[in-house]
Structures are given as C-alpha cells and as structure tokens.
Simulated scan of single mutants.
Amino acid sequence: MSLLSSNLRNHFKNQKAIKIIAGINNTSISQISKIAQAAELANASYIDIAANVKIVKFIKSFSCLPVCISSIEPVDIYNCVIAGADIIEVGNYDFFYSKGIYISSNDIIKLVKEIKSLVCNIPICVTVPYYLNLDEQVFLAKNLEFIGVDLLQTEGVYYSNYSKSLSCINDLHLCFSNSLSASLLSTYVISQNVKLPIITASGVTDIFTSCTSSYGASGVGIGSAVNKKKSLAEMTKYINQIRHTLMNKHKNISVYLPNNNI
C-alpha cells in the first residue's frame, strides 16, 4: 500500500475508495471517455480499464485519475505500465471462466511474482477467485500479502457459465445480490486474516454500498451499474450517489451471506 499515492491511501484507510470499472473487454474510446469523465467529475478514487496501451495513453491525456489496468498477461501489463498505468490488477478471470478454466492459487502466485519482477515499483492488486473455498482464499490472500501485493479484490459468483440452469437468471437484481453476497463473505473472512485493503466487487450497486465497510471492505469496484447509464450526466450522478452512500456508514443494509462451498 506504500506504493499508492497519499490520496488513494487515505481513501482506502477511510474505507471510501471507489474504483470505476470500464470493462476488461471494453475498447470503445467514446464509452471509456464518458466513463472516465464521469468518474473524475464525481470524485471517484480511480478507474480500471482494459490493458490496452492506446487506451491508457488516451485516458492519461485528459484525466488526472489514477489508471488501473486489468490483465493476466505480463507483456500487456508491462507495456501498459510503460505507457503510464498507475496500478496493476491481476484479475478479471472471466475469459477463463467462460472456457471452463479455473486458475489455481499456485498459478496466481507464480503470475504475480513474474509481474512484480517486470514492474517493481507499481502497486499491484490481485483478485481472489470466488471458486476457491474460504480456507483456500485466506491461504492465497496471506501468501499474496507475504510477497508484497498492495491490494486485494473479492469477486462474486460468475453466472454466465450457468445461465441456462440458473432459476434467477431472469431476475438480474437477485443475481447481482447473490453475487455481492459471495463477494462480501469473502471480504469479511479475508479481512480477518490479512492487513491489506480489500475492494469488494461484483454486483455492487448504490443500494448496497453502505454495508460493504461493515464486512471489512476498504473500497468498492463498480462496473455494470455505471456502464449501463446512457449519458455522462447519469453516470456522474450515479457515482456521486455511490460516494455519498459509502460515506454514510451508519446506514447498514443486511445482505445474506451464503455458505462457503461456493
């Protein structure tokens, strides 16, 4: 965490960090530009974009927000850091999930070590996969803390693989709530075992944001809830709602936490 800017450190310390996720597969300059502008206007903490050198340079050309790039490809990560990326996230495993591939804890640790050898002085966040049981998630989190990772992120259940069998697939709100529940459970358990800041992502909306800090989250990752807004004004207003809700820690909304055999 020492590698983060003082402003970001304060956001995480006060449990009010907001990461706006443009999307790992989103390469639409116009859409990403709108999202980045909204994030800056609403005083979000930083923006997460695809690991694309052109996009990194474009965002850095007009935005003062720290830029996080998400990838599992060391070469792409290295090139984006050279282009000006401020934070690295090892995560967004959806590409593998869609192919039925699930990365092991050992593979993640090896990947992080390789990336750290390439970019020594850049903050690194790692997403802890949802499909690991809670003991395995804690074991991975502790190992990542030991090797010098700066941030962790939790994720919820990946539904796309199971869209035909899920009875809740026609109720997106229920799906997102279940996904958030899984992410919050991971956040709570991991936060009891490591000292690293944890970002809760997957299904986070303005309705549930205020409860995340109660589960040990130092920040939230917001993606689809912002991306589906059509205009810059709507995006900005929504992020402002997230920020105001996150600061209101006295309003605690209960979210059902599933068991640990996710």
Rank of each mutant, 00 (worst) to 15 (best):
L184R: 08
V157K: 03
I147H: 08
S191I: 11
C175R: 00
I147Y: 14
Q137C: 13
F146G: 00
E155F: 01
I147G: 01
Y158I: 09
H173K: 09
L185H: 04
S183F: 14
I147N: 11
K164V: 11
F176N: 13
S165N: 15
V189L: 07
N170K: 04
I147L: 04
N143G: 08
Y131M: 02
V189S: 12
V157N: 04
L151M: 08
N133Q: 15
T187Q: 07
D135H: 06
N193E: 06
C168Y: 14
S179H: 07
L151D: 11
Q153S: 14
I147C: 04
Y188L: 05
D135R: 08
T187C: 14
N143L: 03
Y188A: 05
I190V: 10
Y188G: 03
E145T: 02
N178S: 10
S165M: 03
Q137A: 12
L166R: 11
L151G: 14
N133Y: 00
S167H: 09
A141S: 09
K164S: 14
Q192L: 07
E145P: 00
A182H: 15
S167R: 07
K164W: 15
L151F: 08
Q137D: 14
L174P: 13
Y158G: 07
N170L: 11
N143F: 05
Y158W: 15
E155C: 01
V189R: 03
C168N: 10
Y162S: 04
S167A: 13
V138E: 10
T187M: 05
L151Q: 04
S165I: 13
C175K: 00
S191P: 14
A182K: 06
S179T: 02
Q153F: 01
E136L: 02
Q153C: 10
L174Q: 05
L132N: 06
E155V: 02
V189Q: 03
E136C: 03
Q192N: 11
I190M: 15
Y162Q: 12
S163C: 14
C168T: 08
H173T: 14
V157Q: 05
V149L: 05
K164F: 13
Y188C: 03
L172G: 14
S160T: 02
N133G: 06
S179L: 01
N178H: 13
L132F: 15
V149S: 09
N193W: 10
V189K: 11
